[in-house]
Design a protein around this nucleic acid. Structure first.
Length: 461
RNA sequence: GGCGACGUAGCCAAGUGGUUAAGGCGGAGGUCUGCAAAACCUCUAUUCGGCGGUUCGAAUCCGCCCGUCGCCUCCA
């Protein structure tokens, strides 16, 4: 497949270096607040990339970190009067529940910064030894001037960054853009012993230490949201390449566009967040995945209730197309089987083109339409349905219609009874009474569908 | 101020030099139905922010203008 690489700014044919196993590192979250729909978008994108690579026959080794020590975690824990560990444990749980609910495959390893202090210290020491880093007043900084290609990912120069003029002056730094590798501890903060005194790792160094430990360089794919390009990934490149001398340390840098809420980017600092929990209370995981994949992964996407609702309705097309074809008992399918191969080809060609999920989805809708059409014509569609399920699965769609709650299941025999009563009334042409049953069931959220084969009912979605 | 992205129907969103500009939502008509609903069929952008230019040919390339957004600070 062809895949866009942020580092070069162009699409490049993607092949794992060893031809078989894809080494993929995706930056994870800082667990101090609920997982929001922006996170969900990002991880749905990388989950889809992973599923597609696996569908192509590759093994994917997927590593995703938790930044479980940082200023905000310390602050929130103190506000809540609990330990940092208790706070992060809570939100890591939330994260996993959310990922599972969205049918996002688990990474192979989820390393945590606090559990990788040893490798982190070794990496920092190596950078100090190589003169890429220096200690100052208990902190350790990366010396950006020593890395000549600093800025190559975000396509900016040190001069250009300084022109931004929003840099805080720090007298301990040799250069304003030097960034912290090790942060000396202030009283009351969690700290680990180091050659430079007690402290904790800076944000960027953990990813260097972890990706090297769990995947070895060079990585095939390094991913994250576009907001991580600078400074996080730029700094990671500087550290990783300075540390190992391997350049580039990741072949493909893949960044998803950010989810926006209204006019602005959805972000922790703006506080305009919608949690995944809130979204899933209203909409199915399939609908949300469809929403996230309905625009190209590198484009920004506006999140809205209207958009989610539209996707929910569009899923009905698939649900209906995938229903069992017991119709064939009445009108024996004598015709030809629907050939899904052209749709599969369209789907694969779209996915091969830098994960063009909007086009891939369009192919699936066309396939669904043909399934409905051919089934009505009495042709065989079982194989085509299998193809639709399989390709939808590459996008992580489950096609599970929203399951009924337990009290709804308990009501089923009574609804069946009302439906069969209505059928008898209709046969007796007692339409007023029959319609009353239909209307009152509708008021309870039960939708009846009449067809030549009888009446089926379902809960309104 | 520096760097970058984008502007396609009522809404969302593909397409980036060449037959009828994907797909979804919404809308209109039809088939089916006792009537509905669901489903299916048909229709729904002579035109791609504006103005110039290159070309036999541009939504697609170039220039200018208008507008929106992102990064430059924690962030997926």
């Amino acid at each position: 497949m062809r895949l866009y690489n942020t580092l070069t700014g162009e699409e490049k044919e993607f092949v794992p270096a060893d031809g078989n196993t894809v080494k993929m590192y995706v930056c994870g979250v800082t667990p101090y607040s609920s997982t929001h729909v922006g996170h969900a978008l990002s991880y749905v994108v990388f989950d889809t990339l992973r599923r597609y690579l696996e569908y192509q026959g590759y093994q994917v080794k997927h590593i995703q970190n938790f930044t479980d020590v940082d200023d905000k975690i310390i602050q929130r824990a103190q506000e809540a009067g609990i330990s940092e560990d208790a706070l992060t444990a809570q939100y890591i749980d939330d994260f996993f529940r959310t990922m599972d609910a969205l049918n996002i495959l688990r990474a192979d390893v989820y390393p945590r910064a606090t559990q990788e202090i040893g490798p982190i210290l070794e990496t920092i020491q190596s950078l100090v030894d190589k003169d890429f880093a220096y200690a100052a007043s208990g902190d350790v900084f990366f010396r950006v001037n020593r890395k000549e290609d600093y800025g190559k990912l975000s396509h900016r120069t040190l001069d250009g960054m300084i022109a931004g003029a929003r840099i805080q002056v720090d007298e301990d730094k040799e250069h304003p853009m030097d960034f912290v590798l090790w942060k000396g501890a202030k009283p009351g903060e969690p700290a680990w012993e180091s050659p430079w005194g007690p402290g904790r790792p800076g944000w960027h160094i953990e990813c260097t230490a972890m990706s090297l430990r769990y995947l070895d360089y060079p990585l095939d794919i390094h991913g994250g949201g576009q907001d991580l390009i600078f400074p996080h990934h730029e700094n990671e490149i500087a550290q990783s390449e300075a540390h190992t001398g391997i350049t580039p340390f990741a072949h493909h840098w893949v960044h998803n566009g950010l989810l926006q809420l209204g006019e602005d980017k959805m972000s922790k600092s703006l506080g305009n967040l919608v949690s995944v929990e809130e979204a899933l209370a209203e909409y199915s995981a399939d609908a949300l995945r469809m929403y996230f994949l309905s625009s190209h992964y590198r484009s920004p996407l506006q999140y809205s209730d209207e958009g989610s609702a539209a996707m929910e309705r569009s899923m009905d097309r698939f649900y209906h197309a995938l229903r069992p074809t017991d119709v064939e008992e009445v009108a024996p399918a004598s015709g030809e089987a629907l050939d899904a191969a052209p749709f599969r080809q369209r789907f694969l060609a779209a996915m091969d083109d830098d994960l063009n999920t909007p086009q891939a989805i369009a192919a699936l809708f066309d396939l669904a339409r043909d399934i409905n059409r051919e089934r009505d014509a009495g042709n065989l569609v079982a194989e085509a349905q299998t193809t639709l399920r399989e390709l939808g699965g590459v996008l992580g769609l489950t096609f599970e219609e929203r399951s009924a709650g337990s009290d709804q299941l308990a009501a089923s025999p009574f609804i069946d009874l009302l439906v069969s009563t209505r059928t008898e009334l209709r046969q007796a042409r007692q339409f007023a009474l029959a319609d009353r049953i239909r209307d009152e069931l509708a008021a309870q959220g039960v939708v009846l569908e009449d067809s030549a084969q009888g009446t089926v009912w379902r809960y309104q979605r």
